[in-house]
Amino acid sequence: MRPILMKGHERPLTFLKYNREGDLLFSCAKDHTPTVWFADNGERLGTYRGHNGAVWCCDVSRDSMRLITGSADTTAKLWSVQNGTQLFTFNFDSPARSVDFSIGDKLAVITTDPFMELPSAIHIKRIARDPADQTSESVHVLRGHQGRIARAVWGPLNRTIISAGEDAVIRIWDSETGKLLRESDKETGHKKAITSLAKSVDGSHFVTGSQDKSAKLWDIRTLTLIKTYATERPVNAVTMSPLLDHVVLGGGQDASAVTMTDHRAGKFEAKFFDKILQEEIGGVKGHFGPINALAFNPDGKSFSSGGEDGYVRLHHFDPDYFNIKI
């Protein structure tokens, strides 16, 4: 079907997130206001005003009451989804890059970028039921990554944290003790900076996208490499269909080189791969800049992509899509 073009951001998109029911879509961009949309028709529902820098990431609680956002203004903020009020602000000494609620929404993991002398870090925060009781104390602070951490998410049963970033290594940490449990294998792992990481809907595996022009699928417990998907362009964003065994990769030529060549050279397509066979199924064109963010609706019937061009494109699948056989 014709995609719905959502024009609301003035700067490149950075992240997209559906709530659990799949009726709301949250978008973050380099402008300072995260936005919430109706996931069905792309109507803008509201914005969250208060950040003073690019917003890199967000997560929404299971009951769709709370939103957490991480921003380059060195804060992470908790919001009320309903009325857009700021509930709490976590202050850091460097930009907050990624945020993720744990199962049960009682904990959150926030990563911060390296800044000046400061190395990058993973902070685990307790999230209070009542915002009035919220404190900014960290349960744990994990360090050990070289360079920026692109994303950190919770593992099964909140026992582990999986993080990946610029140093191309995926790490699994014990969330209780803060110890490093596993590191991805240098041989089979990514060769260049990892740009994105997305968990499967059941949390059994996750996929990482990297500038080495590939995406890889990993077992979330053992960190064994299961699949590799090779493309022609650096991968900026990855997601997986909750319904079918499809992996979607987004990316494209580096934004700084875009204007120098033909628009077709950029390959700003969202590429669909068969998750099991590792074969390319098709692509969805449309963006005129690299794709920075991808998200699947939890019902698996639509997905959205956000680009360097500042647009969110909301795609509802045609019935044919569900009959693809290869």
Partner: peptide, 17 residues
């Protein structure tokens, strides 16, 4: 995975109240 997931079901329920 499913088998392991099943085993952990109770624990998960506790986590999410």
């Amino acid at each position: 995975w499913k088998q392991m997931h099943e085993e952990e079901k109770l624990e998960r329920q506790n986590l999410s109240d």
